Simulated scan of single mutants.
Amino acid sequence: MPARRTKTAPTNPRAASASRIRPDFSQELAALMAGDVPVAGADEVGRGPWAGPVVAAAVILDPDRVPNGLDDSKKLTAPQREALFDVICATAEVSVAFAPPARIDGHNIRQATLWALSRATAGLPRRPRLLLVDGNDLPPVSCVARAIIGGDGLVASIAAASIVAKVTRDRLMASLGLAHPGYGFERHMGYGTPEHQQALETLGVCRHHRTSFAPIRARLAPAAE
Results as ranks from 00 to 15, higher is better:
86 D>R: 14
40 A>P: 12
104 I>W: 10
68 N>D: 13
42 A>N: 13
111 Q>A: 13
72 D>Q: 01
90 A>M: 10
76 L>K: 10
56 A>V: 09
65 R>F: 04
108 N>W: 07
52 G>V: 03
56 A>K: 12
48 G>N: 10
32 L>N: 02
70 L>V: 01
75 K>V: 00
108 N>Q: 12
39 V>E: 05
48 G>R: 10
68 N>K: 07
80 Q>P: 04
28 E>F: 05
105 D>I: 08
92 A>H: 09
82 E>M: 03
91 T>L: 08
83 A>D: 09
54 V>K: 08
78 A>W: 08
61 L>I: 00
60 I>N: 01
41 G>F: 12
69 G>A: 01
62 D>A: 07
111 Q>D: 11
74 K>G: 13
37 V>E: 09
44 E>P: 02
40 A>R: 11
67 P>M: 01
69 G>H: 01
112 A>H: 12
74 K>N: 14
95 S>V: 13
48 G>Y: 08
60 I>Y: 00
28 E>D: 14
54 V>N: 03
50 W>G: 01
113 T>C: 11
54 V>T: 09
50 W>M: 11
89 C>A: 14
72 D>H: 02
52 G>C: 07
93 E>D: 14
65 R>Y: 04
33 M>I: 02
88 I>R: 07
107 H>V: 13
72 D>F: 00
63 P>I: 03
78 A>Q: 13
62 D>Q: 01
55 V>L: 04
66 V>D: 01
70 L>E: 03
90 A>S: 15
